[in-house]
């Protein structure tokens, strides 16, 4: 049995649209439209999709904040709809843009308050906190009011706050939003260790696909309320990322090159970008063809960006159609 199981989950919202000055029209919008998946204990899953695709609606249903219109949800063997408070003990949640720490008080105080809220025995709390202080290097700012912390420090505090009661599942909504490069990579490294060493199952929604690439073995793409891809990141690239780009630097500005099996997608002075399909031609053939007609100063091959691959999935699962 999976730790998280969704079966045919649907969620409708009623929105009132104003028609004219006074009259309002009632519309039913389906935010989640038949989502089914299972997450096993110990997995680290990226759950991504464009704005309004139904990501946070799904997460809300997983945590029991929101009740599904149809279908069934089971998390840690519980029905979130009925056992919200019980489930709360077993999950940790980090909303990247929302704060769960006490703004004017030191981090330590927030942790102590959460200890009481989750009824964690004092000695266990002390042990866990020491572990997190070490892992996340919190020691230097544990006694600083939260309002004075940097974004990166705050995020480390948030993640700790979400884990101190020893949950088996951690939901992260945009955890690296607004962080600088260094803080981002620290946060990722920590999350990977939480997953690997503490065995916490992690479900991550994010806009930053490099989070997913670095962290998640499994990726789910949701669009228009449906799961349009569920598999590994590599698999996704293999299936949807058949296009690569050859970047050539010529001796000077020139007309777009005409080569069989590739097309010029961008020209910037002497530099040209040629997109080609992996199955139809190879980079070597392409280079040979170009070099036979034009003098090439330099060249590089760009692997498909995960952003582009996923954008292809959104528009209908076929980025390679021409």
């Amino acid at each position: 049995m999976g730790l998280i199981e969704l079966d045919g989950v649907e969620r409708d919202f009623v929105v009132h649209r104003r028609v004219g000055r006074v009259r309002r029209h009632r519309d039913v919008v389906r935010a989640v439209d038949g989502v089914s998946f299972t997450v096993e204990a110990g997995e680290m899953v990226g759950y991504i999709g464009p704005n309004g695709a139904g990501k946070s609606t799904t997460i809300k249903m997983l945590t029991g904040i929101l009740v599904p219109t149809a279908g069934s949800v089971r998390v840690a063997g519980l029905d979130p709809q009925r056992s919200r408070t019980e489930l709360a003990m077993r999950i940790g949640v980090v909303f990247g843009q929302r704060n769960q720490l006490w703004w004017d008080l030191p981090l330590r105080d927030s942790f102590e308050l959460l200890r009481h809220m989750y009824r964690v025995p004092a000695d266990l709390h002390r042990r866990r906190l020491a572990e997190f202080v070490e892992l996340l290097d919190l020691g230097s700012f544990l006694d600083t009011p939260v309002r004075q912390l940097s974004l990166g420090q705050k995020m480390r505090g948030e993640i700790t706050a979400a884990l101190l009661h020893g949950p088996s599942i951690l939901y992260l909504d945009e955890p690296t939003i607004g962080l600088d490069v260094v803080s981002k990579s620290r946060a990722r490294e920590f999350l990977a260790r939480v997953n690997r060493e503490l065995g916490v199952t992690v479900v991550l929604t994010t806009h930053d696909l490099s989070d997913v690439e670095r962290l998640c073995s499994r990726l789910m793409v949701i669009d228009h309320g449906r799961v349009v891809y569920d598999g590994t990141v590599d698999d996704l690239k293999a299936r949807h990322g058949q296009y690569r780009t050859l970047v050539v630097d010529l001796e000077g500005p020139a007309e777009p090159l005409v080569v069989d099996g590739a097309e010029v997608v961008r020209v910037d002075g002497p530099r040209q970008w040629l997109r080609f399909h992996r199955d139809r031609t190879t980079a070597a053939q392409l280079i040979a063809a170009i070099a036979s007609t034009t003098a090439v100063v330099d060249l590089t091959i760009e692997e498909p960006l995960i952003e582009d691959v996923i954008a292809g999935v959104y528009v209908g699962g076929a980025p390679d159609r021409t």
Binding site: T63, F95, Y118
Partner: peptide, 10 residues
């Protein structure tokens, strides 16, 4: 931010 209140065991 009300969601946060519903995520607590209290």
């Amino acid at each position: 931010s009300f969601d946060r209140f519903l995520l607590r065991p209290v």
